[in-house]
């Protein structure tokens, strides 16, 4: 079985940095030199450093110290499922807050995240943590600091009831 770490994860940052450098230069190319100077020098440095990394990885691959693939990047499958689950929950929380409002979206987000990490057997813990976090966050952000988060009828009712 293959035990050497994969080199593909190591390519993500340098390739991403080069792509961003090219995009950056494309947006400033028509500007006077003074406005381009930072982009040119920094993107140039990124290209040189990335090239050094590519050469280093190629040598490691050639000498058998690295393999193709993602080996070593993804660890324990349970942790991977939890991590992706938490990422999806976070994105959903941000996307749904304008629709569901602050309180409901936050409660569901915390509840889902705890269950995702600890499993259904911790339902009681999840409910306590979700309730406590939502109450504290509501008190700080909505009642005390009055941050303008998207509010639903649930939020305004609670706020009017408390104040």
């Amino acid at each position: 079985m293959e035990k050497r770490p994969g080199l593909i994860p190591e390519l993500i940052i340098p390739i991403g940095a080069i792509a961003f450098g090219i995009y950056y230069l494309s947006t400033v190319w028509s500007l006077p030199f003074q406005a381009r100077v930072v982009g040119i020098y920094v993107s140039g440095a990124i290209a040189i450093l990335s090239l050094i990394i590519f050469v280093r990885l190629a040598r490691e691959f050639a000498s058998g110290r690295k393999s193709l693939g993602f080996r070593g990047f993804f660890t324990d499958p349970t942790a991977e499922v939890r991590r992706w689950g938490v990422l999806v929950m976070t994105v959903l929380f941000i996307a749904l807050m304008p629709l569901l409002g602050f309180t409901v979206s936050l409660f569901l987000f915390v509840l889902g995240t705890v269950l995702m990490i600890a499993g259904m057997e911790r339902l009681k813990h999840a409910l306590i943590i979700a309730s406590a976090t939502t109450v504290i966050a509501f008190a700080i952000f909505i009642l005390l600091v009055k941050v303008r988060f998207p509010l639903s009828i649930v939020d305004t009712t609670i706020r009017n009831w408390v104040l």
């Binding site: 987000f109 915390v110 911790r122 999840a126 943590i129 976090t133």
Partner: peptide, 9 residues
């Protein structure tokens, strides 16, 4: 399971 949702929130 306690720290992750609290920090994220």
């Amino acid at each position: 399971f306690f720290l992750v949702p609290t920090i994220l929130t």
